[in-house]
Design a protein around this nucleic acid. Structure first.
Length: 268
DNA sequence: GTTGCGTCCTGGACGC
DNA sequence: TGCGTCCAGGACGCAA
């Protein structure tokens, strides 16, 4: 399930493969979520950026191909000789040099848009994203202020992408565990926010450094698995001893999202 | 405006 | 072995 580190890993691998390529044709699944892929025909890739979990592929005509990978989205570039007939291909962009950029998404939770560069008002979540966690705009004070303004559970707020961009279930559980914050807390002290600010950066940077977390579907552009799954302390380890205090980690569903936490290190 | 829940979507795990 | 049920979760829509 691609979160910020996975999307950033894909972006870094993809950019040198697509910049300069012109899209001469495109196909897509009939769903409205994927049909806009065809709007990119005629564009030439100039650069790539990322906002949270959104991949922004710049085109020469002041437009952007915006891709959200959802839970199971994958991107790879097929060579001219490929005759792939993958039933889970949801969109493909054919280049002037014969290669094809393929968007594969088994569960069809991904989405694709083509918009004028920087005009994201129609993509509500993208437009409302909080600061980039690995950039200078993400501060402990800003996180605390953002969290103070809501009565929702701390983890639910993180998943909303508003206090900070790019955090999903895996990295939220890891950051909260490291910060010793109870995931269902509805208020944060300033010192808790400072710890959480630090641990969000730590876990996301580690994820990027390790090429992302592969639990099932995530693959890099080259088709490789990430390695961050080998360094997770908390997520998906319910029943196992907490690496810090040896208390059995617990799993609980809040707001329809499964959360793993340590009942001793992360008290109410 | 905020909050919480249902829905989308399908492969895999599990129980019978 | 085969079938049915449940679970995973990011984003969005809707009702309260």
């Amino acid at each position: 399930m691609p979160e910020l580190p996975e999307v950033e890993t894909i972006r870094r691998e993809l950019e040198p493969q697509i910049v300069g390529a012109t899209i001469v044709d495109a196909t897509s699944h009939e769903s409205a979520k994927f049909r806009p892929a065809r709007d990119a025909v005629g564009g030439r890739f100039t650069a790539s950026t990322r906002r949270g979990k959104y991949l922004l592929l710049g085109l020469h005509d002041d437009r952007e191909l915006v891709i959200h990978l959802g839970m199971t989205g994958q991107l790879h570039v097929d060579p001219p000789t490929s005759s792939s007939t993958d039933p889970y291909t949801r969109a493909s962009w054919h280049f002037d040099d014969g290669r094809t950029l393929v968007f594969r998404d088994v569960r069809r939770f991904g989405r694709i848009r083509v918009v004028p560069t920087g005009e994201h008002a129609d993509i509500t979540t993208l437009a409302a994203l909080g600061p980039e966690p690995l950039g200078p705009d993400f501060t402990a004070e800003g996180l605390w202020q953002a969290m103070r303004g809501s009565k929702r559970r701390v983890k639910t707020q993180l998943l909303s992408q508003r206090p900070v961009a790019g955090v999903g279930n895996i990295y939220a559980d890891e950051a909260l565990w490291r910060a010793r914050v109870y995931p269902a807390a509805r208020t944060l002290t300033r010192s808790q926010a400072e710890r959480l600010h630090r641990t969000i950066i730590e876990v996301l940077q580690a994820g990027v450094d390790n090429g992302g977390t592969t639990l099932r579907d995530y693959r890099t552009v080259a088709g490789d698995e990430g390695s961050n799954q080998h360094y997770l302390d908390c997520y998906g380890r319910a029943g196992e001893p907490c690496p810090r205090c040896a208390t059995a980690l617990r799993s609980q569903v809040w707001d329809a999202r499964t959360t793993t936490f340590c009942p001793r290190c992360q008290p109410r």
